[in-house]
Write a protein that binds this DNA or RNA. Sequence first.
DNA 1: TGAAATGTTGGGGCG
DNA 2: ACGCCCCAACATTTC
Length: 457
Amino acid sequence: MNIWWIRRDLRLTDNPALSAALAEDAGVTPVYILDPLLLAKPAPKRQAFLFNGLRALEQDLKKLGSGLIVREGDPQTEIPRLAAEVNAGKVFAEADISPYARRRDEGLGKIIELHLVGGLGVYPVDAVCQANGKPYTVFTPYSRAWRALPYADLSLPKPKWLAPTPNLNSAPLPETASSAGFPAGEQEAQRRLNQFLEGTIFSYATDRDRLDLEGTSALSPYLRFGMISPRQVLSGARRAIKERLESQARASCEAWINELIWREFYQSILFHFPFVRSSAFRPNYQNLAWRHAPDDFRAWQTGRTGYPVVDAGMRQLAETGWMHNRARMITASFLVKHLLINWQEGEKWFMHHLVDGDLAANNGGWQWVAGTGTDAAPYFRIFNPTLQGKKFDPDGMYVRRWVPELAHVPQSYIHTPWQMTAEHQKNFKVEIGKNYPHPIVDHEFARLRALDFFRSK
DNA sequence: TGAAATGTTGGGGCG
DNA sequence: ACGCCCCAACATTTC
């Protein structure tokens, strides 16, 4: 008997750990450990998505004749205990890269025969490195090396049948509301991918930035928990490229693949530089004199900064657990550059809410925005929330959807509501300063202040 | 995966 | 016809 320890690979198709466990020609016991250390940090929407995903996986396992064992506790205790119960000698799991996961797995590896297989990306995390063996710290060369690796369009098949799981104790999964907007499970992930590949992907290069369109795949939560594998997703994109000859369509597919590479780039950064978890990648950006401004932070968190596109993004996050990538950049930039609040505060808030919240990607994104990271955005790259709104939400539909106070404001004022006369405000059913705030900081002032702040660092 | 400031060019209005 | 000015459009530089 082998144990398949499920962590971030909640799927049966193209699952290297499961396949490896099966290849031994032994029975497989699938187990998920509810680790109090991992569940301690509150992230209700993400945890609901996880638990619902486990329920979906359990159903899928049942269809194959198997089941899912759930245990609660420290994996270093629980895995060996389960192994003793089912008389298993080997444990198979997908390799993980976070500092905690690596410590945990290293510890367990001393107790039991633990086989770590594959990884969170298309390639093992350390496979993409320079000729001298050192990790890349800049995205572009990393992406070149990534693309140069041989890739076989192979997806491991879903097993046809699994041996019945022994009748053992299994902890109940916490009851959670359904994950509105993101139904959990492998089928839904597959359905989304297929739908994306049917059309959306071919205009991704331009539409991905549009806040008012559904121009992205919205697969991030599914990739986060491995309800679909990066290989499945990459194979799909490569198939799509073959279908179309127009340069625009192909460039769009490539642009989407690039986003997959970003994901793995940041995984590689976290793996090789685990300190980024709690400090700046660039040490000289470690101790900036960030503002302590609880009121401003609160306004940002609750989507009441007075900048419509910022507020729309923050409310979309709080309501749905997801935010459009462009909005993530705009809101993050606003916190760091306009308010001069420590990016780590923003990182924490995002982690609390995001269904797709992932340490490597979230941390990498925030460090990028703050200019403390690898491909550091130059300090003077400061988003103008008004211009960003006009460019990427030209009619204001994204703003109206998430900031209902502004529902009746016409296009001409939707990104600058403070410019409306009292008469306008009356006509458009909003009173600035009363049911929608004045901008909490003037853009021009904030821009100059940020330039000063980061220049003199 | 900016934005603002500054510089250049060229068409058109007009005395 | 000519020179001058205005300014939009685009390009370059700067933060």
